[in-house]
């Protein structure tokens, strides 16, 4: 293999333009391999592109769409047209703009909760897997117990507690005492609080996956060698363990974001999540369902936005799983 590359290099010496990249003989790293495998999976690539597009559209909503809360009562409930791509709602607000702005809340909620879950899960799983023995047994027992809790019901319980103006008032009270009266949480913080709490419940699967990986890495020769050389535990964990479990972490993160977004939409649809005038896709779907008989586009567009995004995230996640962990791939 190396020989042919050498030959190829010599052969291209006189060629007008070098076609072989500089690192050609360096071989391809695990990540490059995975990247190539991912590119071969067309559905995942499509999923990835759609996810990026949706995220960019939502982030630039302020520039490309009219403000979401401008009411134009002359224009209420107009069907989709060139001026209003997704039509207008019962108050004459531009639905395209509302969908984009709602997407920001939906995506933000998915990312916040996933990050909280990620941090807790990775640290917990690594500690449990690295120390093993009784520490592991106790820590995993706790995970098993929390796992048995009925999750959605627990989330509704949390939403009753956190998604509550009086809870925010209490927190504001504490914040004022500590940081002075300038620091106040607005109404959109209810939902952030709620999803930080959901993230704090959602970390279990992450902890289990990381723990399994760390446990098998722990017995590998290079870790034994690091221990024998007297490398401090913290360094072993951050330099040797975490980079090696990055693959499953990336995969699982990609799959957690859509499941949290679905949860947010579920709660908002029931009226227990994001509250108007803030609008997420769940709120828009709920509002759309109320008036769908006369104005079906009010339901169809937010529903499509949510479904397509979830669909794309799942395809991307599946593709990443196949690419990063060929052994775990299905069939």
């Amino acid at each position: 293999m190396l020989e042919t590359e050498e030959v190829a290099k010599i052969a291209t010496n006189d060629a007008p333009a070098p076609v072989i990249p500089d690192d050609a003989e360096a071989g391809s790293s695990l990540w490059q391999d995975a990247w190539h495998r991912l590119l071969k999976n067309r559905l995942s690539v499509l999923g990835g592109i759609v996810v990026i597009l949706v995220a960019l559209l939502c982030l630039s909503a302020g520039f490309i769409a009219p403000p979401p809360d401008v009411q134009n009562l002359d224009l209420h409930e107009t069907p989709p047209s060139a001026a209003h791509w997704f039509g207008t709602d019962t108050l004459g607000r531009d639905l395209f703009s509302r969908v984009l702005h709602g997407g920001r809340i939906s995506l933000a909620v998915g990312v916040v909760a996933t990050l909280v879950a990620l941090c807790i899960g990775v640290v917990y799983g690594t500690v449990s897997g690295y120390y093993g023995g009784n520490v592991d047994a106790v820590m995993m027992r706790i995970v098993d117990i929390i796992y048995a809790l009925p999750f959605t019901i627990f989330v509704i319980l949390l939403s009753v507690f956190f998604n509550n103006d009086q809870t925010r008032d209490r927190i504001n009270h504490v914040l004022h005492a500590v940081f002075g009266p300038g620091v106040t949480l607005g109404s959109e913080f209810n939902i952030i609080l709620l999803f930080a709490a959901i993230g704090a419940v959602e970390w279990l699967t992450m902890a289990r996956i990381v723990r399994g990986q760390v446990r098998s890495l722990r017995r590998m020769d290079f870790v034994e060698a690091a221990i024998a050389l007297g490398v401090p535990t913290r360094r072993i964990i951050f330099r040797h363990m975490i980079p090696n479990v990055l693959g499953p972490i990336v995969v699982y993160t990609t799959l957690t974001i859509p499941s949290v977004m679905l949860l947010e939409a579920f709660l908002s649809f029931l009226g227990l999540g994001v509250q108007p005038p803030n609008a997420s896709w769940g709120v828009l779907i709920q509002e759309g369902a109320k008036s769908m008989e006369e104005f079906p586009w009010l339901l169809v567009f937010p529903g499509l936005a949510l479904s397509i995004t979830l669909f794309s995230f799942n395809f991307l996640g599946d593709g990443l799983r196949d690419a990063l962990d060929p052994r775990a791939s299905k069939d």
């Binding site: 679905l262 939409a265 579920f266 649809f269 769940g282 779907i285 709920q286 759309g288 369902a289 769908m292 008989e293 079906p296 339901l299 169809v300 529903g303 949510l306 479904s307 979830l310 669909f311 799942n314 395809f315």
Partner: peptide
């Protein structure tokens, strides 16, 4: 089935009502 997994009940339900009931 992938579509079924991704289409949440709260989108599917109203759509079914819209088409088959209304």
């Amino acid at each position: 089935s992938m579509a079924g997994v991704c289409l949440p009940t709260f989108v599917l339900g109203p759509l079914l009502v819209l088409v088959f009931a209304m």
